[in-house]
């Protein structure tokens, strides 16, 4: 049947590109902070789970600090480059790979 009528399955079903795949690492950190730690704390609050609220907030604080440090680092690099007149050159690094190539056609 599927050979007569091919079904192209997308996304979740086969485990392809999830939300926040096409982003930089610092954005991904923020996504995980928002999705897991924040929603975890909020749902724990809604369900009266004090321990979950505390754990969520602990993780959010740690994530906030780490994201803050990384942001400073990135801004410093950018500032240094700007002063030195260096134009960042985009590389193909983010555009190829076994999964990334496959994903272009099958997502």
């Amino acid at each position: 049947m599927t050979s007569l009528w091919p079904i192209e399955r997308i996304g979740f079903y086969e485990g392809q590109a999830s939300a926040f795949y096409n982003v930089s690492a610092i954005e991904r950190d923020y996504f995980e902070m928002w999705y897991f730690d924040n929603l975890g704390a909020y749902k724990s609050a809604a369900h009266g789970n004090l321990e979950g609220v505390e754990q969520g907030h602990r993780k959010m604080e740690a994530a906030l600090e780490s994201i803050g440090n990384k942001a400073r680092e990135i801004r410093d690099i950018s500032e240094t480059e700007r002063k030195a007149g260096i134009e960042p050159e985009p590389s193909g690094l983010w555009q190829t790979g076994a999964y990334t190539d496959y994903n272009r056609e099958h997502n």
């Binding site: 485990g15 999830s18 795949y21 930089s24 590389s91």
Partner: peptide, 22 residues
Amino acid sequence: YQWWHGQPALDGDLIRIRDAIE
């Protein structure tokens, strides 16, 4: 496990690997 602990977690790894070697 198919999803949160699996596929998207692998996606996160790929992003962080690229970030680390760039």
